[in-house]
Computed example of a mutant assay.
Amino acid sequence: DRKDKGTEGYCSSSYTMEIIFFTQTCVWWRLRRLFLALMLLYVFIPVIVKLCPSIQAKLVFLNFVRVPYFIDLKRPLDQGLNHTHNFYLEPEPGVRVGVWHTVPAHMWRDAQNKDGHWFESSLGSAQSAILYLHGNAGTSLPAGAALTAVLFQVLSALGFHVIAFDYRGWGDSDGSPSELSMTSDALFIYHWLKVRLNKAPLYVWGHSLGTGVATNVVRRLCDRDSPPDALILESPFTNIREEAKSHPFSMVYRFLPGFDWFFLDTISANDIYFASDDNVNHISCPVLILHAEDDAVVPFHLGKKLYHAASRSQSLSGHKVQFVPFDSSLSYKHKFIYRSPELAHILRY
C-alpha cells in the first residue's frame, strides 16, 4: 500500500510539473509573439511615416482631434461667454473660417442680444485688442472650452477685445491646414481687425503651435514696416524640428538610428518649419514670452532658448524682450498660465 501511495504521489507530482511547464511554455510563446509584434510595429511606424509624409503633417497639426467634440462653435454662450459673437470671414474666395469676438467685460450688458454689426462697430472705440492664435489639436478652444473661456474672460476683464479664430481645417472652418495657409489666415484676420480699431493698440498672442504662426505673422508685418504693438508668446518653441524631437510622443523613437531622417526630415518635406528662432531676427516690436517650468508638451528649455535668440536679435535691439517663467510648484504646465494672479500685472507692465 505504501508503495502504491508513493507511486501515486510521484505521478501526481509529475503531472503537476508537466502542467506548470506547459503553462510557462505557453506564456513564454505568447510573450515572445507579443514582443515580436511590438518590434514589427515599432519598425513599421517610421517606415509608413516616411512613405506617407501626409501622416506626419496630421500629427503636427492634430486638427482632426477636437476637444471637446460635441460643441457648437456657433454658440459661445454655451461656454460661459455671454459677451462673445461668432461669425465667419473669407481669407480667400471659397474658404470660410470661424471667428469669435469677445468684448471687454465692462461691455457685457450692452452686448446682450446684439448682432454682428454692433460687435464690429464696437472695435472702433476699443482701447486695445488681442489677436489670439491657438495651438494644435482642436479649435479656438485649444485647452478645451472651459479653460479657454476662462482665458478670454481674464483678458476681457483687463479691458481687451479678443479676436480668436480657427485656421482653415480646424473647428468648423473650411479647407485643410498647412503652415502657409495658417499664416495667411492669421494675416487676413489681423488686417481685418487692424482697419477697424481706429489706431488702438493691437497685440498678437500665440499659444503653443500658435506661437509659430504668431512669429510668422509678425515677421511679415515687420517686413512691411507695420508691426503690431507687441508679440506675446505663451509656451513657445524654437522651431518645429526641435519641438518634435522634444515632444513626449517622440520619446520611444528619439534614440532610433535615423530618427531625423524618418521623422524630422518628413516634417520639412511637408513645408512645415515654424522657425521662430529665425523669425525673431526679423521682428521689430516688444516681445513677451510666458513659459511654465513644468510644461511637458513644449519643454521649458525651448522657450528659454527662444528668449536668448530674441535677446541677441539686431532687429529687436531697442525693443523690450521679456521672459517670464512660472515655477513648477504652480502646476501651470502647458496651458494653465491664465491661472496666474500676476498675469494682469505682467501684461500691463
Rank of each mutant, 00 (worst) to 15 (best):
S328K: 14
Y253M: 05
N281G: 03
S176M: 08
W28T: 10
K58G: 11
V280T: 12
N86P: 13
F255E: 14
Y10I: 07
L73R: 10
S313Q: 07
V297L: 02
R219V: 00
M107R: 10
L302V: 01
L133S: 04
A309S: 12
W100E: 10
R66L: 07
R32P: 00
P46N: 05
S176N: 12
T7I: 01
G6V: 05
H106M: 09
L264Q: 08
L231S: 11
L31G: 08
H247P: 05
D110L: 04
L343E: 10
P228W: 13
L233I: 08
V162Y: 04
K3F: 13
F119W: 06
S54P: 01
S13R: 15
V213R: 05
K74G: 14
A310W: 11
H101N: 13
S122C: 03
E90K: 11
L89H: 11
A149M: 03
P46E: 12
K194H: 15
A344D: 15
S125P: 00
F274P: 04
S315K: 13
R33Q: 14
Y349R: 13
A292G: 10
Y88C: 02
M17S: 15
K3D: 15
H247I: 01
S235G: 13
L343I: 13
L141G: 03
L302I: 03
P93D: 13
Y190I: 02
F259T: 06
N198Y: 04
G6S: 12
S311R: 15
H134T: 10
R30L: 10
F323Y: 15
F274N: 06
G116C: 04
T266W: 07
F336S: 02
L288Y: 08
A230G: 15
V213G: 06
V49L: 13
F300I: 01
N63V: 03
D4M: 01
I189Q: 04
M182N: 11
R220G: 06
S268V: 09
L330F: 07
W170L: 04
Y349P: 00
G159S: 04
V280P: 09
F249M: 04
E92V: 03
E179V: 01
A145K: 06
E179K: 04
S328C: 00
P236E: 08
R348D: 12
L34W: 15
Y338Q: 08
K320V: 09
L264V: 11
L59Q: 12
C52M: 07
F64S: 14
Y338P: 02
L151C: 04
V60C: 03
R33D: 14
S340T: 10
A296M: 03
S340W: 10
R312Y: 08
R75C: 05
D278V: 08
G116V: 05
W192Y: 14
R220A: 02
Y332A: 03
R220Y: 07
R219H: 10
D265R: 12
F61L: 01
Y332E: 06
Y253S: 03
V195Y: 09
D260C: 00
Q112E: 15
S246W: 00
Y42C: 00
P201V: 02
N113T: 02
S235P: 08
R33N: 13
Q153D: 15
Q314M: 02
